[in-house]
C-alpha cells in the first residue's frame, strides 16, 4: 500500500495535491449548484468550455493561461445564455435545452481541435475525456526567485482553489439566500441575476482549470459527487463545505492508490472512489442511511420503498 510513496513520493505528492485542490474548488462550487438544482448546468459548462479553449489557442498560438481563462469564461457564459435563449424563446424544456446547447458547443470544439494542428494544442480526445492528472508533476515547475516551487498546473489550481474559498466566504450569505429563494434575494437588495452569472463565471474558471487534469466528463463528478455525499450527511451548508474538503481528501488519496494498484486512469480512479464514498454515505448516513431504513422496515415487517409504517392506527 505504501509502495507508490516509497518509490517516488514527490511525484505522487503533486498528483495528490492536484486531486485535492480540484476536489475542493469543484466541490465548493458544486454545493451551490446542487442547492440551485443546476447540477447538469455544470455538466453542460464542463463540456462547452472546449471551443473556448480552442479559440483562445488559435488566437494566441500558445497555451496562454489568461487567454484560456478568458476563452472558457466566454464559452461558459455563451452556454448559459444559449440555454436560456432556447428555453425562453421556444417551448423546449430546460433539460432538452441544456443537452442541445452543450452538445453543439462541444461538437464544435472537437471539430475545431481536429481541424487545427494537433501537435501544438496538446488537447486530444484522450485528454478531453480522461484528463492527464498523472502527467501534472511532469509539467515544468514554476520558479520564484530561483527556487522551484512546484508544477505550474498545481500552483494554478491552488490559486483557483484559494479564490473559490475566498469568494464563498465573502459571498456566503448572498449565495445562500439566492440559492434558497431568488425572490427574497431581490427583495433584500441583492442582484440575483448578477449572482447567477457570477457563479457561472466562477464555475467556468474552475472547470477550465480542472479540465486538463480530469477531463470534461469527470469534472462533473468532481463538481457534484462531493456535494451529494455531504448532503447525505448534513443539511447545513457550512458543514457541507467542510465535508466536501474531507471528501476530496479521502477520494484523492484512495483513488491514487487504486490507480496504482489497477494501473489505470488516476482521475477515473479518484472519481470512482468519490462515488464509492457517496454510496457509503447513502447506505450508512447516521440521519438518513438506507441500511437503517431497511432494518427498521424489516423489524416493522411492512412498508414499501420510501415509506415507513406509521405508529399507531386511528387517533
Amino acid at each position: 500500500m505504501i509502495e507508490p510513496w516509497a518509490e517516488s513520493g514527490a511525484l505522487y505528492g503533486w498528483i495528490l495535491a492536484m486531486g485535492i485542490l480540484v476536489g475542493v474548488s469543484c466541490g465548493l462550487v458544486g454545493n451551490y449548484l446542487l442547492l440551485r438544482r443546476m447540477a447538469l448546468v455544470g455538466d453542460a459548462i464542463s463540456h462547452s468550455v472546449l471551443p473556448g479553449l480552442v479559440v483562445a489557442f488559435m488566437l494566441t498560438h500558445s497555451r496562454n493561461i489568461p487567454a484560456m481563462f478568458a476563452g472558457a469564461l466566454v464559452a461558459g457564459l455563451i452556454t448559459v445564455g444559449l440555454i436560456e435563449f432556447i428555453h425562453k424563446k421556444s417551448r423546449v424544456k430546460p433539460d432538452a435545452a441544456i443537452c442541445i446547447a452543450f452538445t453543439t458547443l462541444f461538437a464544435l470544439g472537437v471539430v475545431m481541435t481536429s481541424l487545427i494542428d494537433k501537435g501544438g494544442l496538446h488537447i486530444d480526445a484522450e485528454c478531453i475525456l480522461y484528463g492527464e492528472i498523472a502527467f501534472v508533476p511532469l509539467e515544468p515547475p514554476v520558479e520564484w526567485f530561483g527556487i522551484a516551487i512546484g508544477p505550474q498546473p498545481v500552483l494554478l489550481m491552488a490559486g483557483v482553489a484559494l479564490a473559490v474559498v475566498g469568494l464563498s466566504v465573502v459571498f456566503y450569505k448572498e449565495l445562500l439566500v439566492s440559492s434558497f429563494d431568488p425572490g427574497l434575494t431581490t427583495s433584500l437588495g441583492f442582484n440575483a441575476a448578477a449572482l447567477h452569472y457570477g457563479l457561472m463565471a466562477v464555475l467556468s474558471v474552475v472547470v477550465v482549470s480542472a479540465f486538463e487534469a480530469v477531463g470534461a466528463v469527470m469534472v462533473v463528478a468532481m463538481l457534484i459527487i462531493p456535494g451529494m455525499t455531504a448532503a447525505q450527511l448534513s443539511s447545513r451548508l457550512p458543514v457541507r463545505h467542510g465535508l466536501v474538503v474531507v471528501h476530496s481528501g479521502i477520494s484523492s488519496l484512495a483513488g491514487l492508490h487504486l490507480s496504482v494498484w489497477l494501473n489505470c486512469s488516476t482521475a477515473g480512479a479518484m472519481v470512482v472512489m468519490g462515488a464509492l464514498l457517496f454510496v457509503l454515505a447513502w447506505l450508512f448516513s447516521p440521519s438518513d442511511g438506507l441500511v437503517w431504513r431497511w432494518r427498521r422496515r424489516g423489524s416493522d415487517g411492512s412498508g414499501e420503498e420510501g415509506t415507513v409504517a406509521s405508529p399507531g392506527g386511528k387517533v
Partner: peptide
C-alpha cells in the same frame, strides 16, 4: 438532476478506469 449527474459521471469514470 443530481441523480442523473451522479450516474453519468460515476459510471463514466468507472468505464475510463
Amino acid at each position: 438532476d443530481a441523480a442523473l449527474g451522479f450516474v453519468l459521471a460515476a459510471f463514466f469514470a468507472a468505464g475510463v478506469c
